[in-house]
């Protein structure tokens, strides 16, 4: 469908205008408002002891949640992509839940289990462990909300790569662990990296669930996002903007990292229509909830995207049907 020039431009203006009003102007404004009173004030407000502690706590929580979810994500992705086992459909559905549930409900659910009147709260209190209104609660909430990212990134990549290379490694004498380390892991590394980037962003930015379980004790259980809210509530607008700008910078770095990961470069985004779908694996995170079977079979041409054009002719797309 070839849209004529006039239409093309009006559609473009409409789309970009919508984006500008909703996205670009607001974000630009954070930085403007942040720096309108000078850099010194900003520096002062992000180096107060409370701010430094909030930053440290946020990083600590992220440093616990992301590795755990990454490990879980890789193991689960291999099981989902390579195995047939009972309960797989159910597990697949449960993994998506953190994407679909309100963060406030997530926070509440943790209170109901680990709070003083929760299922395990009494026993934990007797053992001297406080979860709710304490750092362990924040960690649990953060793990919960960021749990699906790595699984959802890695599973489609594993399916796309297929298991032929792993089989080849087995016929060459490589054992299970060697095959995983030398064949499987290298082929999913960018998928893992992408999932990790998304997880980090989510962990740093989580607000709702953490806000319910943290108790917001300054210098103890206050994360960066909670600091923003508290400063706003205390009419310290400049301070809230400064902390927000810091978070927005982290978000922009996230976008940069997402763009920099190979196979995801927007170079792939040409209006031609013959281009890889891999760039969208993250959108497929959401899509995967939507259409788990959509992406299972992809033409191998997307896998061998880096094949030089000269060699393409001798390499017709893989046949789907496959003999017995």
């Amino acid at each position: 469908m070839t849209v004529d020039r006039r239409w093309q431009i009006s559609l473009r203006v409409l789309a970009l205008g919508y984006l500008a009003l909703l996205l670009l102007v607001p974000v630009a404004l954070i930085f403007y408002r942040t720096f309108e009173h000078g850099v010194g004030a900003v520096w002062d407000s992000i180096t107060t002891p409370a701010a430094i502690h909030a930053f440290q706590l946020t990083l600590e929580v992220t440093a616990i949640a992301v590795p755990l979810n990454t490990l879980f994500g890789i193991v689960m992705a291999v099981a989902l992509a390579r195995g047939e086992w009972r309960g797989k459909g159910l597990v697949n559905a449960v993994i998506d839940l953190p994407f679909a549930i309100s963060p406030v409900v997530i926070g509440l659910s943790l209170i109901l289990v680990y709070g003083t009147r929760g299922w395990l709260g009494g026993a934990l209190a007797d053992a001297g462990v406080q979860v709710i209104f304490s750092v362990p609660g924040i960690v649990l909430a953060t793990i919960f909300v960021s749990l699906p990212f790595v699984v959802r990134e890695v599973t489609p990549v594993l399916k796309e790569v297929g298991d032929e290379q792993e089989q080849a490694a087995a016929t060459l004498g490589a054992g299970g662990w060697t095959t995983f380390r030398r064949i499987t892991l290298p082929s999913i590394r960018w998928g893992v990296a992408y999932g990790v980037v998304l997880s980090v962003a989510r962990c740093i930015g989580e607000f709702g669930a953490v806000s319910v379980v943290s108790g917001k004790i300054a210098g103890q259980t206050e994360t960066l996002t909670l600091l923003v809210e508290k400063r706003f509530g205390n009419f310290d607008l400049a301070g809230a903007y400064a902390a927000s700008a810091l978070l927005a910078l982290i978000a922009l770095a996230t976008l940069l990292a997402m763009t920099a990961i190979p196979g995801r470069s927007p170079d792939d985004l040409r209006p031609s229509g013959t281009v890889s779908r891999r760039r969208f694996a993250t959108r497929d995170v959401r899509r995967s909830i939507a259409a788990p079977s959509h992406r299972v079979r992809r033409p191998a041409s997307t896998i061998r995207r880096h094949t030089t054009r000269a060699h393409r002719e001798t390499d017709p797309p893989r046949r789907e049907e496959g003999d017995t």
Binding site: E164, Q165, Q167, A168, A169, A170, T171, L172, G173, A174, G175, R182, I183, P186, S187, A300, R304, R318
Partner: peptide
């Protein structure tokens, strides 16, 4: 197990280890 059968297997779609050079592919076994 296939690892211990002493076989060489060649696949229709090559099953080349994409992240390894030709040398490393051949040297793998």
């Amino acid at each position: 197990a296939p690892q211990r059968r002493g076989i060489g297997f060649v696949f229709q779609h090559y099953a080349a280890f994409k992240h390894m050079t030709v040398r490393d592919n051949v040297a793998f076994g």
